[in-house]
Amino acid sequence: MFEIRNLTKRYGKLVANDNISLQVGDGQIAVLLGPNGAGKSTLIKCIAGLLRFEGEITVDGQPNKSLEAKRKLGYIPELPAVYDLLTVWEHLEFIARAYRLENWQPDAEQLLARFELLEKRDALAKELSKGMRQKLSICCALLPRPRALIFDEPLVGLDPHAIKELKKVFLELREAGCAVLISTHMLDSVEDYWDVAHIMVHGRFAATKVNGDGQRGLEELFFEITENAPKGQQGGADAETEESR
């Protein structure tokens, strides 16, 4: 559903993403793992169209900055993107109006119920806790029913119920044929549902592992790569699969 070809992102002399190629198919959950500063959030922001880059990113065959691609893409940022002076319900109304959605109210109510925000529907976002703001941010991204979703550290700050619910949402999105990319450094949080994992080190893919392939678990592979990688090691755009390692 979305594809990245030879993506390079530089900040001055610093190469944050170095010749990255990646594909996430329909009904697939890909996870992006890596230590702090590996370049995960930069890659996510490039896909969301927030940053300039060299290379090519397409969503359903369309360039990611085209209107067609934007209609199909959902983005959940690392920091909750909510407006302090709007109520919870008004956030969803704003998204519905901005995306020209019809009959969105039942979906909105269902989302708020799932994330235990119904009681807060008339509360201002400035009155919400950090976790609630994150849940609202997730609801806003899910309301337009995007076909491709990118999550940047979505579980940070959520309570156990919200984590459980969000994991269910991931699985439902996969069932519905959506392409999902999740960036995280919480390995145990993705154990249950990932299809393919990309481990990033120093702006490049150090390894790509398909769920069920190989003997080693994700955590074992992750630590082997990240703890043995000398500073400045380039994992290689030709990322090794676990078999090749």
Binding site: L67, K70, R71, Y83, Y99
Partner: peptide, 11 residues
Amino acid sequence: TYPYVYLLPEK
């Protein structure tokens, strides 16, 4: 400073 304005599929 919010992502919505960039993500919105409008001219």
